[in-house]
């Protein structure tokens, strides 16, 4: 690990200033990803600004939305009564991620900001445009069984590893941030980026901007929800693919639908066309299969992840079936 300076912030403004004025400074909260990356030399911040003392842990309702503080722990959110009642999809997605030990450390803001698990990103001896712009994409012609089928570029085919974010994009959440220029809101779907020519940028946060909360608007998705995650063991593994599904069913007819996928793109992947294909239709397996076909349009596989094209529609169907039956 490199030497670094450590400061503890007690006020958001101080934390923001400390990071805004120093390009080599980073916020640290749970540290479950950043510390690993520092140990491996993948990230080498010279200053860590500890934000754990900031008052950003509350979960409370305001303005027809549930506001979840950026420092709320993943385990706290998953167990929170209001979350479980109003947004059970989020609780399901959180509990599908990592392990209890990690969920007890990881925060909501940190979860959103975790870096890809692409092995080329993690190995400083191998090329990676995300880690070292211009060095090339190791995965493009390399081992790419975990990689993207949507929204990639020839610079980067990595996927975002968060489960929680897949649920949040499906639930139309909004990210609240504070920065040197004040506060702003970012729709969750616009928070993460596609790689394009600048895969080193995972999100649309500006330098020094701090996530303070995530708002989830009230909605009808309190019952028919499911988070389907397929991984290589029963627990504690990143998704090969995952699907967040939420349905509002009235008398067998789908009134509203939300669908998003994880493990397919550089960002949590909202499937709006498939949602449209569900609305107004009966909640049947045949309709779910049709929506899955729509969802997979435009998907393209690489050498080792061709299975995602077969598995993808299957798990969309499985997620919708399970959600409908919930």
């Amino acid at each position: 690990m490199n030497q670094f300076q450590y400061v503890r912030a007690t006020k958001p403004q101080a934390a923001i200033e400390a990071v805004a004025k120093d390009p080599n400074a980073r916020f640290i909260a749970g540290g479950t990803n950043l510390v690993d990356l520092m140990k491996r030399g993948v990230m080498t911040p010279q200053k860590l600004v500890d934000i754990n003392r900031l008052d950003l842990r509350k979960i409370e309702r305001q303005n027809n939305a549930l506001r979840i503080g950026a420092l709320a722990l993943n385990s706290t959110v998953a167990d929170d009564r209001q979350v479980r009642e109003r947004h059970p999809l989020l609780a399901l997605a959180l509990n599908a991620g990592a392990s209890p030990q990690l969920r007890n450390m990881a925060t909501v803001g940190g979860n959103m900001l975790q870096r890809t698990r692409c092995p080329y990103f993690y190995d400083t001896a191998l090329p990676c445009n995300k880690r070292q712009p211009g060095s090339g994409c190791g995965a493009l012609e390399g081992i790419n069984r975990m990689h993207a089928i949507f929204g990639f570029s020839d610079k980067c085919i990595a996927v975002h590893p968060s489960d929680m974010s897949v649920a949040l994009v499906a639930l139309d959440a909004t990210v609240q941030v504070s920065g040197p220029k004040g506060n702003r809101s970012i729709p969750f779907a616009d928070f993460h980026r596609l790689p394009g020519d600048t895969p080193e940028k995972d999100t649309n946060l500006e330098p020094g901007e701090l996530i303070t909360a995530v708002d989830i608007p009230d909605g009808p998705f309190t019952k028919h929800v499911h988070y389907q995650k397929v991984r290589e063991r029963a627990s504690y593994a990143f998704a090969l693919l995952s699907v967040a599904a939420a349905l509002d069913i009235d008398n067998g007819t789908i009134k509203a639908a939300r669908l998003a996928m994880g493990g397919v793109a550089h960002k949590p992947w909202r499937l709006t066309a498939a949602e449209q294909a569900l609305i107004g239709k009966p909640a049947t397996e045949a309709i779910f299969r049709q929506a899955a076909t729509v969802a997979m349009q435009g998907a393209k596989a690489f050498k080792h992840n061709e299975y995602k094209l077969r598995l993808g529609p299957n798990i969309i169907v499985q997620a919708l079936k399970t959600a409908a039956a919930a």
Binding site: P119, Y122, A125, L126, G138, E141, I143, F238
Partner: peptide
């Protein structure tokens, strides 16, 4: 990854 002769599975997460 045979191009580099280097393991891409490097920890118990991979």
């Amino acid at each position: 990854d045979d191009r580099f002769g280097r393991y891409v599975t490097k920890d118990l997460a991979d």
